[in-house]
Amino acid sequence: MSQFVVTYISHTPELSEAHVAALNTQLESSSSQCKISQLKFISANAADVYLCSEGPLPLTELQSQLRGLIDSSEDVDIVLQRNDNHRQKKLVVFDMDSTLIYQEVIEMIASYANVEDKVREITDRAMNGELDFAMSLKERVLLLKGLEIEPLYEAIKPRLEITKGVPELCRSLKRHGVKLAVLSGGFIPFANYIKDQLQLDFAKANELEVTDDGRLTGRTKGELVDGNCKARTLLDLCQKYSIAPEDSLMVGDGGNDLPAMAVAGFGVAWHAKPRVQELAPSRLNTESMIDLLHILGYAK
């Protein structure tokens, strides 16, 4: 049995045999310890290449050997995994903003509340390392103090745009008995809305504190859903559903998704920030998230 599988997923509708042959040449030249044992086209835009190593070879070492090829490939995502029975996951956990949906909800709320400039300033400070996630969330939520909660929710929910391929992906995974969850650093009413739209099994996000007359206090309540919380919750879900952690997958685009990727069986950076793509176990930058099925070992 082949020890590793490399999946090529093209950003275009078709992955040609010539392109695969060129990638295979680069693949074998990148690692003198591995030889291609089998090639299998699994859809018009994806192929699996099975590798055997001549001796013991850790996945991390092979990943390092292939890093240059993975980073230099602009029109094909290259995903390396062990070829074992843990490839088809039993639990898939998603981030929400810029993953299950195209938008960032906090920016939509800022627009609704006419505080876009102030939120952008906080975002810039966070990106410059002046604020951590907890502090940036606290400052952003404080800007919302006094807003009526129900009109806010009702104005934004219909505008949430689900990422292309996500509904089909979720339906397919559900048919295979996979548990699905969304863990968001955003806010629970929107996470629950997306959960209901996609028929997910679980949702967790931050909760906004509300006064008796339905206005925001400018604070959150309960556990902060940051990267560490996402990692803990993923493991809790594994225990809840009697699923081994190696049979779980985390999909997200931000740095606060990396801790959950680290404890899951595998991780996928979906159209992520450059640093996240570099640190995540794999990356996917295609037009439709239905291509995640190829990473999980399913053929179209």
Rank of each mutant, 00 (worst) to 15 (best):
Q63A: 15
G265L: 09
S72N: 11
S136P: 07
F266C: 00
L91A: 03
D95G: 14
S242T: 15
Q3E: 05
L296P: 01
I9S: 01
M289I: 12
V115I: 02
E116M: 01
V93D: 13
L258M: 05
E17R: 00
A191H: 04
M108W: 15
L57M: 03
R120Y: 07
V79M: 01
G222W: 06
L173S: 06
Y241D: 04
G297V: 09
P13N: 05
M250V: 12
Q26N: 08
L293W: 10
Q103L: 15
N24L: 11
A203E: 07
P151F: 09
L160N: 02
V178Q: 10
G214S: 09
K230W: 11
A299C: 12
G254N: 08
Q26S: 10
G222L: 06
D236I: 00
S282F: 11
E150P: 10
C52L: 13
D71Y: 03
R175Y: 10
G265V: 03
M135L: 13
Q239C: 06
D196K: 14
D236H: 01
I122E: 04
A264D: 12
E17N: 00
P274M: 05
S111K: 04
A262N: 01
H294I: 04
V251L: 01
D196V: 09
G218S: 03
Y112D: 02
D291N: 10
S31V: 03
D75Y: 12
A260W: 06
E207H: 05
